[in-house]
Amino acid sequence: MDLSILGMALAIGLGAIGPGIGIGIIGGKAVEALGRNPEVGGQIRTLMILGIAFAESIAIFALVIAFIAFSTHK
């Protein structure tokens, strides 16, 4: 079995764990905050999207590494 394929799968698979948890926490807390004071919903949504974008970019880095591993294996 080609180890670089395994490396690619591991890179994105392991790299997605942290951001997945992080995005879950951000989304949950945002909904919590929205429940407490719905009048600032717009601001919360904006901040939530920003926070998710930051957390998500970690997973995207892992994805880029995975693609690099994939494209250099030949």
């Binding site: 974008a53 998500e56 970019s57 995207i60 880095f61 994805l63 880029v64 693609f67």
Partner: peptide, 8 residues
């Protein structure tokens, strides 16, 4: 990387 990664 965020933009590239997402789009790619």
């Amino acid at each position: 990387f965020r933009l590239f990664g997402n789009v790619f």
